[in-house]
Nucleic acid binder design. Structure first.
Lengths: 191, 191
DNA sequence: CTACAAAACTAACAATTGTTAGTTTGTTTT
DNA sequence: AAAACAAACTAACAATTGTTAGTTTTGTAG
């Protein structure tokens, strides 16, 4: 029976270090030290440093992709779908903040193949979200505006939740979820 | 007469490279090559690699600080002040996108003194913005909500404008400005 | 034309990088 | 007990890193 625990442990520790210092500032010796072993021993479990990064980023990108694909297919209003998407970002950020941070900050250090796969998934994600927004606009659920702008302002907030959440752990998830939806969808000023 | 042109040129080129690849992935030889000289020659103009990073980041942080300090002192409504802050982010992003990107991505690679200065400025910026939001809430200009959440969702969008602007250069600045204010302050869904 | 300073160069350094080869240790299976 | 395997180790490699010392080139002011 192959032992995957060690590999998972390596990837998880790497994600934390990458998040703190950035991919290029973390050496294999740093990573090994945190795990209590020597750098060379890492190679019994992983094939390269970049392979660790790819595992961190691509697995997380797949999580996001899966969520939005499911949401897209549902028979619900666009606004309801946007709420579900907000929810999924909160969930994934809470569940694996270091992975999400790493995806946001270090994707450009992926090489050829992996970089391509990542960008493909990101494009797919954005274009799915764009479709939801445009459909909502056509059905008058969403104010007529430049859809790119809505896409951007929504995503920029959701993508950087990881920067904010650890500082505000005291907020209940349900409260965060409710207020964020309100904030992002209904705006913040009094009418 | 001391020639600062070369130094400015180095800092500007560095900002571009840092933005593309991240601080640690850019070597002094890479930077020199882009300028058409040898790495050692850089040291006739700058004292260290980190000093370049500090120049890029701290000068930009000072720009942002100056803007918000001015806005804070004005005799206007909080909503009007928020609109001005949005405007200043757009302006600075257009004017020096690479610098802003660098500030966002590479600040953690500053050392001791410079890191401290940066964090101090960032804290000052956030607390000034927080004051504006809370005042607006007390005067019923802004919906009662967790002010941290408004602070976060606003800043996350404004801070990552640099990711989005180059892809959408065709949008007029005045249009961008107007729609972004609408979007961030009034929300996106139909009431 | 000379003198001087600014800014380029070459060569080298010590440290650190990711990775490999070969070996030892410890555990599980037969 | 023997054999097989996983997972650690030591030692070393070639490449790259930021930076320094010392030298040469270039442009300008007297």
């Amino acid at each position: 029976m192959k032992n995957n625990d060690r590999k998972e442990q390596i990837v998880k520790t790497a994600a934390q270090l990458f998040r703190e210092k950035g991919y290029n500032a973390v050496s294999m010796r740093d990573l090994a030290k945190d795990l209590g072993i020597k750098a060379a021993s890492l190679y019994n479990h992983i094939s390269s440093k970049e392979a660790i990064l790819a595992e961190v980023i691509l697995s997380t990108a797949r999580d996001f992709t899966e969520h939005i694909d499911n949401t897209f297919l549902e028979e619900k209003s666009s606004v309801k779908k946007l709420e579900e998407i907000i929810e999924s970002h909160i969930d994934l950020t809470i569940e694996k903040a270091n992975f999400v941070a790493c995806l946001n900050n270090d994707w450009m250090h992926l090489e050829e193949k992996n970089l391509n796969d990542y960008i493909k998934m990101r494009n797919h994600y954005e274009s799915t979200l764009r479709k939801i927004i445009i459909k909502g606009m056509n059905l008058h659920e969403i104010e007529p505006q430049n859809p790119e702008l809505i896409l951007f302002s929504l995503l920029s907030t959701l993508r950087t939740l990881y920067l904010w959440y650890p500082k505000n752990k005291h907020i209940e998830k349900s409260v965060l979820s409710k207020e964020l939806k309100n904030n992002l969808l209904k705006g913040i000023i009094t009418i």
